[in-house]
Design a protein around this nucleic acid. Structure first.
Lengths: 229, 229
DNA sequence: GATCGGCCTTGACCTGCATCAAACAAATTG
DNA sequence: CAATTTGTTTGATGCAGGTCAAGGCCGATC
């Protein structure tokens, strides 16, 4: 990882959802304890079990959080996009990272020291609330993830995933997987081959259309029913 | 559910880890907006999709949080024991319950209104921090849960689960499942029969001993190695 | 535009686990 | 203490999906 100059960290921080609306002084204190890293595609930010340095903010690129397992296998927990934060938990729990993180693209990540964030939270009820909300969102994401990847059959796993991406109350919609299908397979706990077959089956049934990394769901309702047959 | 008298809610609240150390006035305000419910074994507290009333605190008994699925199947997310809280997320997100809750024993549960808790958090930085910590613990629990139940083989799922229950650095230890083995199976995404067989296999290999609802791990290190063979 | 290296797909095979069924044990009830 | 229900074990069977292998597609590089 290459450490960047700090000229604009303050400004970048102020643009992140989590820190928007903070006092100037608070923001400045945070920025002083923040480092900016540029990471290359495929570079590992940290491994499961490492000692945490602080909270991470994705400014640009895409970071994969995953559980590695003996024998090269891995379960993808979440893909972090710009504006999202991860590693919040380490600020409050004195534990090693529970996941590994890897850049899937050329990325820029901020790391805010535990101590600074801890102080900021104490002095800013607004930040505290925002952190709470952010953690709750994370919890919900994990739950929907569990739901998708513990369904019985591979078909259910895929339809469950697609249904979860549905915007409220529209019959047809697009799902842009910002990742390779391999990665999606790892997220749904499927072999890539199986995912391919299931998508083929759903296409054949006229329920979806696959165009590269975009999946078009043609009938949300039918799709949901299909898996229970 | 039977609504209880409120004579001692204030006192009960003050004994819960989450609220210990709060000001008298704050506690009183919370207690005024808290209800105590007694629920029977097998009774449903709420279903996934219901509109949340508030945050839940388990005072006595055991509450199962689970994801129901079409066709009577279910994935157990977590068993809540006395002193633990759940449904925190609903205070900050305006969403329906993401899980269902069912009492596994005769239980006593407090429900604190969203509004009251929200006010309490604003006025008490201490409570805010405690909530953050509690949510982080929950996150970690979910992650270890995912880890256990997305391992490839049934054997790995079970050994992974047993390893996670290990106290730090002791060769041998007991795991007291406070539940039936059916429930554990649902937690690990296994058929009860499969769990039974795997436990049998591990016993035969001399790695564990099963006595009713207690599993004795004889050699933590060997157990971890065994699954990767 | 030709060559290379990821990705993705398709096919054939075979194992691991769910399912069904039945016997048994333990816990609950009258 | 018998009777009933609920939980656990064991066996036999079938199929879903993982694995291995080969071929096609597409974007990257020179």
């Amino acid at each position: 990882m290459i450490l960047e100059t700090r000229h604009s960290i303050h400004e970048i921080l102020s643009r992140q959802p989590l820190f928007r609306g903070l006092e100037e002084a608070e923001l400045r204190a945070l920025a002083a304890q923040t480092r900016e890293y540029r990471v290359h595609k495929h570079e590992i930010l940290f491994n499961k079990g490492d000692t945490p340095q602080g909270i991470h903010v994705v400014v640009m690129g895409q970071i994969k959080l995953f559980l590695p397992s003996t024998q090269g296998w891995e379960k993808v927990i979440h893909m972090e996009e710009p504006g999202s934060t991860f590693g919040e938990a380490v600020v409050f729990l004195d534990k090693p990272y529970p996941v590994s993180a890897q850049a899937m693209q050329e990325s820029i990540v901020l790391v805010i020291s535990k101590a600074a964030l801890s102080r900021a939270i104490d002095s800013s009820p607004l930040l505290c609330r925002k952190m709470l909300a952010s953690l709750c969102v994370r919890l919900h994401e994990l739950l929907t993830d569990i739901e998708a990847c513990t369904s019985r059959t591979s078909l259910q796993r895929v339809t469950c995933f697609l249904s979860q991406q549905a915007p409220a109350g529209s019959r047809t919609y697009d799902v842009a997987l910002g990742t390779s299908k391999q990665t999606l397979a790892a997220q749904l706990n499927l072999a890539p081959e199986t995912l391919s077959r299931v998508l083929g089956q759903l296409s054949q049934a006229g329920l979806i259309e696959v165009h590269g990394r975009t999946i078009t769901v043609l009938d949300a309702e039918k799709l949901r029913r299909y898996s229970s047959t």
